[in-house]
């Protein structure tokens, strides 16, 4: 999918949580996060993390130098969940 768009001259970047799948399909640019499937942009209500992931992806549009490069963000799923839980508590969504 991503390759079909890039072939038309439009730069693309994807977010992946499955590094081996991405290595097999070789999209032009990707950002890898070691997160649970279905949680590519992090944890609920953690807007700062969601924004950081998108900003990182957008920066790859201008900064990636080689096709197929997989960029890793130094964040863990445990950390994302911990921070998410604190945010939900502060918002009164979790007791």
């Amino acid at each position: 999918m991503q390759r079909a768009v890039e072939r038309r001259g439009i730069p693309t970047v994807s977010i992946t949580v499955a590094r081996d799948v991405t290595e097999h399909i070789k999209p032009p640019r990707s950002v890898f996060l070691p997160f649970m499937m279905g949680h590519h942009f992090g944890t609920p209500f953690h807007t700062e993390l969601q924004r950081r992931i998108i900003v990182t992806a957008l920066s790859r549009l201008t900064e990636a130098e080689e096709s197929g490069e997989i960029y890793s963000l130094p964040v863990t799923w445990a950390q994302a969940r911990r921070e998410g839980a604190v945010i939900e508590q502060a918002l009164g969504l979790k007791t």
Binding site: M1, Q2, P11, T12, F41, I54, L61
Partner: peptide, 9 residues
């Protein structure tokens, strides 16, 4: 579109 973000779930 000038650029595309993708999220393969």
């Amino acid at each position: 579109a000038d650029a595309v973000l993708l999220a393969p779930a």
